[in-house]
Amino acid sequence: MSRLDALPPWAAILVAAFVLLGALFAFVGSLGLLRLENFYQRVHAPTLGTTLGTFFMLAGSITCFSVLHGRPIFYEILIGVFLTLTTPITLMLLVRAALYRDREEGSQDVPQLTPKD
């Protein structure tokens, strides 16, 4: 932890605020998993962690290490790019699987397949 002591107070406060905000959004997203009622509602909640949660965490990391090393360090942006490209695929697979299951079970809560002519 000795290297973090080199961080000036203003940067430390900024980094702390970013990390706390990121953690807050990730927490609210996880809380949504607990609170929302059905699968299709719950699948919305984790996107909070993968968007603004990740954004604030990465902003904190970029600020911290750029100030510590005295030069701009922003390769954390790649984490954001890869997360944005990959999480939708996982979520869509989950939703499609759930929809398939519900349609097979003849659930009335999901839209039925439009008959093909």
Binding site: Y40, Q41, V43, H44, T47, L48, T50, T51, T84, L85, T87, P88, L91, M92, V95, R96, L99, P111, T114, K116
Partner: peptide
């Protein structure tokens, strides 16, 4: 469009019917 809709919290891409060109999304 799929990436946009799914990464935006509150909306998610559910399925797309290429014959009728109808997109099904779920809105929170």
């Amino acid at each position: 469009l799929a990436c946009i809709i799914t990464s935006t919290p509150g909306t998610i891409w559910v399925s797309y019917d290429p014959d009728a060109n109808i997109l099904l999304i779920h809105v929170l």
